[in-house]
Amino acid sequence: MTFFGAPVYFLAVALFALGIFGFLTRRNAIVVLMSVELMLNAANLTFLAAARGTAHVHEASAYAIFIILVAAAEAAVGLALVLALFRIKQSTDLDVASDLKG
């Protein structure tokens, strides 16, 4: 069975699910950001796998580049926020940052 049929999508789904799991359960803010990167990569993979062998490989490529760029921006801002959080709370534990609790 060729890898470039359903299995590559399965791989993307698994990556995405792991990203979600990490995002929802890890309390270290840095690892949570890493999980987001995992999800973005899963999206990229889906994009490219779907475009493979069609006339739209360049478009897929270009959009994947966009996604990577946005991921870079997101990581930069996110990590800056982690730093700010650490400065206030002396911790990167996301559960500590609950000042807006109702």
Binding site: Y9, V13, F16, A17
Partner: peptide, 13 residues
């Protein structure tokens, strides 16, 4: 939730 994503993703795949 991750499991649900896997199932739904598999169907979509």
């Amino acid at each position: 939730i991750a499991l649900a994503v896997v199932v739904e993703g598999a169907v979509l795949s």
